[in-house]
Simulated scan of single mutants.
Amino acid sequence: MEMFSAIRNSTTGLAIFAVVTAGMIALTQVATSERIEHNVREAEAKALYEILPRDSIDNDLLENTTEFVAPTLLGHERPAKAYRALRDGTVAAVILPVVAPDGYSGNIQLIVGINADSTLAGVRVLAHKETPGLGDKVELKKSDWLLGFDGKTMHGDTDSSWAVKKDGGQFDQFTGATITPRAVVNAVGRAIRYFRSNRAALLGLGEEVAEHGN
């Protein structure tokens, strides 16, 4: 009987420990996820206003958005937000979140600012896992390479110059690293194509943003 009592007490103790531990893990996850979400929003806002400075537009970018789903061109299977920049009451530019799935070490998360005339307002990388000292030159703090997109646009969907120089295009690759810049160049090109296909909707001119197949 003493043995059974000891086993029962041990089992009860383990069960209580498991419940308490699970509760602590759950609370930690909630607190961590909220902190991560806040940090992501702060980083996103900082990057948005690097592309379109606050004093160059008339609205809060985080408060003027439209949702879209674009798995093929922009890499979003679930609804994502496009940010609209207003000047004199009209949408002058949008910023699209884009996923480059073909980075050297995985996905590269970008935001791409596109003016109403389809020229680029700017490009920023939000997150990546590229090789330090090589692929991480997509970070503005490591290199000014991203600034090479400013003001550029694609001349049609089959513009052969929209590529890294190794592929016959206009954009520099990194010394010892071609895959990362190629992935970014291609992703930005897809963003321009998506913008052109959905220009009226993204600029708030009355059409619905395409949700599937783009």
Score class of each variant (00 low, 15 high):
residue 128 H to F: 01
residue 131 T to N: 01
residue 29 Q to M: 12
residue 181 P to D: 05
residue 157 D to H: 13
residue 213 G to N: 15
residue 203 L to R: 10
residue 163 A to L: 06
residue 5 S to R: 15
residue 185 V to G: 03
residue 189 G to T: 08
residue 120 L to T: 02
residue 178 T to Y: 01
residue 177 A to P: 00
residue 90 T to S: 10
residue 161 S to N: 06
residue 64 N to F: 07
residue 76 H to K: 15
residue 50 E to N: 15
residue 158 T to H: 10
residue 112 V to A: 02
residue 183 A to D: 00
residue 134 L to R: 03
residue 68 F to E: 08
residue 62 L to T: 11
residue 162 W to P: 02
residue 6 A to K: 10
residue 204 G to W: 09
residue 62 L to D: 11
residue 174 F to M: 07
residue 145 W to H: 08
residue 158 T to R: 12
residue 25 I to Y: 13
residue 159 D to F: 06
residue 147 L to R: 14
residue 103 G to P: 03
residue 183 A to T: 00
residue 1 M to L: 12
residue 22 A to D: 09
residue 193 R to P: 04
residue 48 L to C: 05
residue 125 V to H: 02
residue 1 M to Y: 13
residue 144 D to A: 14
residue 141 K to Y: 06
residue 117 D to P: 03
residue 111 I to K: 01
residue 152 K to R: 13
residue 196 R to S: 11
residue 45 A to D: 06
residue 141 K to A: 08
residue 8 R to A: 15
residue 184 V to L: 07
residue 187 A to S: 06
residue 129 K to V: 03
residue 183 A to C: 00
residue 6 A to Q: 09
residue 81 K to P: 00
residue 2 E to T: 12
residue 98 V to E: 10
residue 150 D to C: 03
residue 82 A to I: 07
residue 171 F to D: 01
residue 131 T to K: 01
residue 109 Q to A: 08
residue 84 R to C: 02
residue 89 G to D: 12
residue 92 A to H: 07
residue 44 E to T: 15
residue 29 Q to F: 12
residue 96 L to A: 06
residue 211 E to C: 10
residue 52 L to R: 01
residue 95 I to W: 04
residue 40 V to N: 11
residue 165 K to R: 13
residue 20 V to G: 08
residue 139 E to K: 08
residue 36 I to H: 03
residue 80 A to N: 08
residue 45 A to Y: 08
residue 176 G to S: 05
residue 83 Y to P: 06
residue 182 R to L: 03
residue 55 D to K: 04
residue 151 G to P: 03
residue 65 T to W: 03
residue 205 L to E: 14
residue 130 E to K: 05
residue 49 Y to S: 09
residue 86 L to F: 14
residue 132 P to V: 02
residue 34 E to Y: 13
residue 106 G to R: 04
residue 49 Y to R: 09
residue 18 A to E: 08
residue 151 G to A: 04
residue 154 M to E: 07
residue 135 G to C: 03
residue 194 Y to M: 10
residue 124 R to Y: 11
residue 10 S to F: 13
residue 187 A to D: 06
residue 141 K to F: 06
residue 189 G to D: 07
residue 84 R to T: 07
residue 67 E to C: 04
residue 195 F to V: 14
residue 117 D to Q: 07
residue 57 I to R: 01
residue 43 A to I: 00
residue 96 L to V: 09
residue 146 L to Y: 01
residue 67 E to A: 14
residue 118 S to L: 05
residue 32 T to C: 09
residue 93 A to Y: 00
residue 85 A to Y: 09
residue 31 A to G: 12
residue 90 T to M: 11
residue 53 P to Y: 10
residue 80 A to G: 09
residue 94 V to Q: 05
residue 141 K to D: 07
residue 117 D to L: 05
residue 186 N to R: 13
residue 108 I to S: 05
residue 209 V to A: 15
residue 140 L to F: 05
residue 117 D to I: 07
residue 13 G to H: 09
residue 119 T to F: 05
residue 42 E to C: 04
residue 116 A to N: 07
residue 9 N to Q: 14
residue 145 W to V: 06
residue 120 L to S: 01
residue 45 A to P: 00
